[in-house]
Design a protein around this nucleic acid. Structure first.
Lengths: 231, 231
DNA sequence: GTCTATATATCGATAGAC
DNA sequence: GTCTATCGATATATAGAC
């Protein structure tokens, strides 16, 4: 479809020169297009939405942009580095979304809003969410991802601290429990466990928010460290 | 380490064939070793624990077993089919574990026990859990995985139905909320979000169980479909 | 400094011999 | 049922054109 190869002819000609190699034949994507780095990030997001992280490849991104397969390596050390750049963008957008949707309000509602925004983001921005959590990136190798995700994390820890002012450890447990619950709903939603389509997204979003409220109510349970197995 | 190739000799003998087929040149791992299919599954689990799903390859599994790279394709259509077979085994073991750890008891404790067993399984059997949820397998193409996971699902749905006897839909929401919560904790645990080592596993396991209890208590919230956003 | 051309190595997968 | 041989695609590294 895209990028038929047209002219294998002059493709490599004599390694010595390439007479009209570029200039004359303005075929297509002759672009030294100024910002290959940004273009790669955009194209990666496109590809993620079409084929998933699993099947994403540098070669395909290069092909779609009309550049040589080696070109991306001038900007990103490897495939993971490119995906990490996408993940950083995703983390930023997620943080913005959570902050936007959680206005002022009582702490339990803030936790619910954070959970809701988290799952909503996963549903609406699947490729970005995939890059953020589904690419299997080693976060220790890309600390900038966690850095970019700090605002999202605060949306959970801050209201939790309000609810449990005396006990920072307990507040941390409540925050991570709500975040893990939102995360679980988001992942299972993209996995199809809630069904397909917008209806499924609404179910997952609503359920995550309700679960967040229940956790906030039952915070005494999470306040007790360790086992907490006994009812 | 294990399984150096040295000719298990009588391993498969001649099933009516192979007079001296290989015999003469007993070079190395000549084993037609009878059950390559099972050996592949075992080796895959080994490799998953060493390098993760992402870096698993058929070629490496073949090399480790001393067979040609084409041999596995007699038993599995492709890489995903092999991983699916591992996922089926994982689902079976997960179901057994959940059933074992959840004896008789009150419904909320059963939900907590299911959540606890789920996260515990992820922590103790990382490679199997990876194959089950981290391999990006299309479950619609491998329905046997869901089939094998049915017992695990029942460990969540059954106590939820006990807690909300009148309303099957509400029970379903409670069950999936608890399952999603357990899943979120398991995934984040393997992602390192709770730290590393046994200590992290204990935190995640205990927290998931506590969250399950809180959800069971707050079941009225989850009983209301749709928004449930308002406190 | 950005990209092309090219080479190597590995992987997934298929065809055909034994 | 396994091996040999092979193909196509990919990741990655290097040298050189502009």
């Amino acid at each position: 479809m895209t990028t038929p190869d047209r002219e294998p002819t002059a493709a490599n000609q004599a390694p010595g020169r390439l007479p009209g190699s570029r200039g004359g034949r303005g075929r297509r994507g002759r672009y030294h297009h100024g910002d290959l780095r940004a273009a790669l990030i955009d194209t990666t997001i496109e590809l993620l939405s079409e084929r998933g992280v699993h099947d994403f490849s540098m070669a395909e991104a290069s092909r779609r942009l009309g550049v040589a397969v080696a070109a991306p390596y001038r900007h990103f050390a490897d495939r993971d580095a490119l995906l990490a750049a996408v993940a950083v963008r995703a983390a930023g957008l997620l943080g913005e979304r959570i902050e936007r949707e959680a206005g002022p309000g009582p702490a339990p509602q803030l936790l619910a809003a954070a959970a809701r925004a988290y799952v909503r983001f996963a549903a609406d921005q699947q490729p970005l969410f995939q890059a953020l959590v589904g690419a299997g990136l080693d976060k220790t190798r890309y600390p900038e991802i966690e850095e970019a995700g700090r605002r999202s994390i605060q949306a959970f820890t801050s209201p939790a601290a309000t609810l449990l002012p005396g006990d920072a450890a307990a507040a941390g447990r409540l925050a991570s429990a709500v975040a893990a619950t939102a995360h679980g709903h988001a992942v299972l939603l993209l996995d199809g466990a809630f069904g397909r389509g917008e209806r499924a997204a609404e179910v997952a979003v609503g359920q995550a928010a309700a679960a967040a409220l229940a956790l906030a109510d039952g915070r005494a349970r999470l306040a007790a460290p360790g086992g907490t197995l006994q009812g």
